[in-house]
Design a binder for these strands. Sequence first.
DNA 1: ACCTTGTTGACTAAAACAGTCAACAAGGCT
DNA 2: AGCCTTGTTGACTGTTTTAGTCAACAAGGT
Lengths: 147, 147
Amino acid sequence: MKLSARARYGTKALLELALHWGEEPVLLKDVAQRQQIPLPYLEHLIGPLVQAGIVKSTRGARGGVSLLKPPEEVMLSEVIQLLEGSISPAECVDNPETCSRSNLCVTHDIWDEVKEAVSKVLESITLQDLVERRRQKGQLGVLEYPL
Amino acid sequence: MKLSARARYGTKALLELALHWGEEPVLLKDVAQRQQIPLPYLEHLIGPLVQAGIVKSTRGARGGVSLLKPPEEVMLSEVIQLLEGSISPAECVDNPETCSRSNLCVTHDIWDEVKEAVSKVLESITLQDLVERRRQKGQLGVLEYPL
DNA sequence: ACCTTGTTGACTAAAACAGTCAACAAGGCT
DNA sequence: AGCCTTGTTGACTGTTTTAGTCAACAAGGT
């Protein structure tokens, strides 16, 4: 039931961008450093996020990445799904045809309920929520960590 | 976020035993066959379940395995935890010391909420619930599949 | 004794995953 | 124009985990 590093790193990266919503693009390098993500790894996460229309990237000097959609419009469920593939705990939840006798299979229903529970949580939280929680935690907000 | 085959197989196996609660021990071979679990694999799941006091095993002719605790006293959370290790979606939920700056780390809180949501579902379902759901599905009950 | 059944541990094959490296594309700056 | 900066892409590697197998063994019934 572990979430992949992909999904965890991706979420942290987006939080970082959300903290800078409306400002200049942030350097990938800085996102990596501040959120403790290996830079070459982060590079691979950005692609899908750009294609999904969540992130905008600008090349060249003074370039970087920034959020394209407003933070309050990005649900975590969306992000996780994009980077993780699917949140269902068992294959048969997404593809009922893979398990024979799904009609009798009670456990199938359980895994589906688990999935729904997770979905519900992740759908209820947006990047904006993360930003607010973060600001509440470290009262200093963005100034907390220089650079 | 996938559940391991260990946990899924284990759950199915216990459901099978719960269906025979109060009867003669069931052969491992039959559990494997009816729940579509590779026998040699199932053998490895039984050990931990016996040690945890959930299952009782009897060797020799007319032996087999049977539930030790009443089905209504076995929560799925217990089973999954035993076979899967932990249900938290991220390491840092179980070991906060592994992630530095956990004080500022907002995502940590999210993963914890996800874990709680899953726990809540799995704690609310016992083997007895599975049995009842199963009986409702296949009206014929145990007779549904001969052998 | 012998047959049946669960127990244990060693082992393998395959897949998934995290992470790296290097070549490249695109855009600003002087 | 040329250089420097920054993101993009794809190939690659090493490690870990996982599912699954095999074979020797232990225990109990008949």
